[in-house]
Computed example of a mutant assay.
Amino acid sequence: MSSNRWSRDELKLAFHLYCQLPFGRLHQRNPEIIQLAGFIGRTPSALAMKLVNFASLDPAITASGRKGLGGASKLDQETWDQFHADWEGLALECERLRAGLVTATAVVVPSIEDDLTAYYIGETRQAIVEQRIKQQFFRKAVLSSYRGKCCMSGLAEPRLLLASHIVPWSQDKANRLNPANGLCLSALHDRAFDQGLIALTDEFTVILSASLRQRDEPFVREVLLPLAGRQIELPERFMPSVELLAWHRERVFVG
């Protein structure tokens, strides 16, 4: 699949992986980079360099003082723009591209479809598989951006973490898989955010609803009230969209 110049498909797969890896793991020793490099016929060091090229296009990275690696090409920028214009379509396309490469190289990789085969057939099964692909991409992209920790509590137990949508899945198709529409939250904080008991300002500080502030319970006093006015732990990449946060405050937050 490779040549001296990177193809569009190679760049899509590279950016797809970039979205799902913490910034600190964009190096040639990362097993996921080694695996994809093997599939596309690139060296792990070349793929790692390409991922850091993408980092140089990421406003959240450059705003933090990190620069990534210079030399991003016009095609790199086009790939970045394509994903931001159609997260769902490209997430599904990359899964198909990757599946084709796995088949061509005869490598056995656990499939997202494996546990669905016995229960569903036809269009229903395909719809469920695609839903799982989308959800898995969004979860990995959000959790990796937040270093695998709840941005409000610092909890790092993955079994208690959720990739929470700022604007719900059903309300905004264009941003369903956009990592800037995501927050890494514990199950408790996710529920409070989803129910409008917690919101965020444009400066990423926590607002608590009046009903929550008025509850005189030890748990609320000790765990939730201290969040008021505190800035969340910001992500390495894909800063929360202030436009989407405003939507949440206006449509979901109970004030």
Rank of each mutant, 00 (worst) to 15 (best):
A118T: 10
T79H: 04
F138D: 05
K140L: 11
R96T: 04
R132D: 01
I133Q: 11
E113N: 13
Q136F: 06
D76G: 06
A85C: 02
Y120D: 02
Q135W: 01
G122S: 07
F137N: 00
P110T: 10
Q82R: 10
S145Q: 11
Q136M: 10
A85T: 00
A104R: 12
D114V: 08
K134G: 14
D114L: 12
V102I: 15
R139I: 07
A85W: 07
E88N: 00
V142F: 03
I112V: 13
A118K: 14
V109D: 12
V108C: 07
A99M: 07
T105K: 15
Y119K: 11
I112R: 12
I133D: 03
T117H: 11
Y146N: 09
A141K: 09
P110K: 11
D86M: 03
A104D: 11
D86L: 06
A104F: 06
A91W: 06
V129R: 14
S145I: 10
T117R: 15
W80I: 01
V109E: 15
A118P: 01
Y146T: 05
A99L: 07
L92F: 06
I112K: 09
E113P: 01
V108T: 13
H84E: 09
L97M: 03
V129A: 15
Q135R: 12
T105M: 10
Q77R: 13
V142S: 04
K134Y: 04
E130M: 00
E113L: 13
I128Y: 05
L92C: 04
E130G: 04
I121V: 15
E95M: 03
A91V: 15
E113K: 13
Q82N: 12
V109P: 05
T124M: 13
A127G: 12
Q126H: 12
D114M: 11
S144V: 06
V108P: 09
R139V: 07
A127C: 03
A141S: 15
E78R: 11
K140C: 08
A85H: 01
T103C: 06
R125V: 07
E88W: 10
A141R: 10
R147V: 02
V107A: 13
E123D: 14
I128D: 00
V142M: 03
Q126D: 14
W87F: 11
T103N: 08
F137S: 08
A85L: 02
E123M: 08
R98T: 00
R132K: 14
E130I: 00
A104K: 13
Y146C: 10
V107R: 14
H84G: 01
Q77W: 00
A118D: 14
V109S: 12
W80E: 04
V102K: 06
E123W: 02
L116V: 08
R147E: 12
P110V: 01
T117I: 15
R96A: 14
V108F: 12
V142I: 12
T124W: 02
V102E: 13
Q77C: 08
F137K: 01
Y120N: 01
V142L: 09
I112Y: 04
R98D: 09
A118W: 09
R98N: 02
A141T: 05
L101W: 10
S145E: 08
Q136G: 13
A99W: 05
R132L: 05
G89N: 09
E113Q: 13
S145V: 09
T105W: 03
R139D: 04
I112H: 04
A118I: 03
V109Y: 07
R98W: 08
D86K: 03
R96G: 05
Q82H: 09
W80S: 09
Q136D: 13
A106G: 05
G100L: 02
L97C: 01
